[in-house]
Structures are given as structure tokens and as C-alpha cells.
Amino acid sequence: MKRFIAVSGLTIMLIFSGCSSAKETNLGVSTIDTNGWLSTVAIETVPAPKVAPTPIVVPAPAVIKVDVISLPQADGKVGKVVVSDDDKTTMLDQAWQKVETKHLDKKEILSKEIVESKYRDLLEAMPEEPNNYRMYFKYDSTDIVGDSKILMQIVEDITSNPTLKVDVIGYTDRAGDDAYNKILSMKRAQKVVKLLESKGIDNKLIALDYYGEENPIVPTEDGVANEQNRRVEVTIK
């Protein structure tokens, strides 16, 4: 059924492209006439008009104004914001800096107060940054390093807040091969999920994932053991 819709969608698009090519022809773009396959499609799907219609007046597109404003990160630093429009590109690298599309060369610095009052609804609707916890593991093992204090903190956080979801993501360092590490990262994540369940956390809240050697805390060469990268991250959303 879906496939059928997809096919008919394609047909509609072909018809549409046929129409637009006809319009362009009416507007006097002669190259379309020599475009063999496009005009063939047009003839097969749309009957050619018997009388040459009057030229179609294309309305000027409405002026679209888009403002982009860069904001500081939680740590106060300002990341770069790159804005591109057609083939033009500009970069914002200061806090509360604004650029308007169509005038990418015109930038201005607004005040924090102006941005905060104009966009109060956005700022209020922005979810808090989710709390993230890291549990570290012994080399080539699913044994957690350290005491169970962090586990109790995680459980406390989940139960005392309106938690929608708990991401439990396993990782490894780069000692050992990729495929092995992927499974090791899965076992580490499973271990943490079991611990959370044993503390009464509802399994339906938990989403387990494992990414092996990817996304390291400390980037290293392949084959290098690193105690910070051997971890499970628990993100409370």
C-alpha cells in the first residue's frame, strides 16, 4: 500500500514537473523545448494545450525575514553559529549577536535584556539540560569502579523528579577489537540497567544503548586503554 502511494506520488511529481516545464515554455524559455525526456513525460501525462495560452504572470515572492541570534552556552562560552542563504554564508561568534537573512552582511549586537524579553516564551519552554552521570569500569570488565554512592544519587534523581526517560549508554576504551568492545559496552549497560531495576526503577523508563569505542571522553589511538572511556552514561530526561 505504501509502495503504491510512493509510486503515485512519483507520478504526481512527474506530472507537476511536466506542468512547470510547460509554464516555462510559455514564458519563453526555449531550452525546455529541446529537453527531450522532460517534454516526453509532459506529453504522456498532460495533454498539450490546443491554444497557446497567454503568458503566466509569476507573482513576486513574499519578502521573508528570518532573524538568527546567537546565545551563550550554559558555561558562558559562545559557540559559532553559521547561517547560509543561497550561496552566501556568515558566522555569528558573539553572544546576543543577530543577523537577518537577505542582509547577511548586516550584523548587530543586541542586549541580553532585549533578547530575553522578546523571546521569553522560548526561553521558558526550553527543557533543562538533562542530568548526566558516568559510572566507570575496570579494564575489560563489567565491574564498576568505586562505591555505590553514584547509583544511589541516580536513583534519587530519577524518583524525585518528573522523569520521562532514562538513557543508559555503554562505552569502552580502544583496547581490544571493535566487535568485542561493542559487546562489552552492551554488557556494561545491561549491568547498570539491572542495578537500577534492583533499586525499583521501572524498566519502561529505561532505554539501553551501547556504542563500543565511539564518542570517547578522551580521544586516543586505537589499542589504547583509558579508564575515563570505560564507562556507562546515565542521562535522566
Binding site: V66, I69, G79, K80, V81, V82, V83, S84
Partner: peptide, 17 residues
């Protein structure tokens, strides 16, 4: 708004008027 306009960054506001 348009497919030609793209934005990348870390923290920003976009306002389409």
C-alpha cells in the same frame, strides 16, 4: 522557511517573520 537557508551552531534562536 526556505530550503536554501541553513543554520548550524550550538545555541541560537531562529525567528521567521
Amino acid at each position: 522557511k526556505t530550503a536554501t537557508m541553513g543554520i548550524r551552531g550550538t545555541h541560537f534562536i531562529v525567528d521567521v517573520n
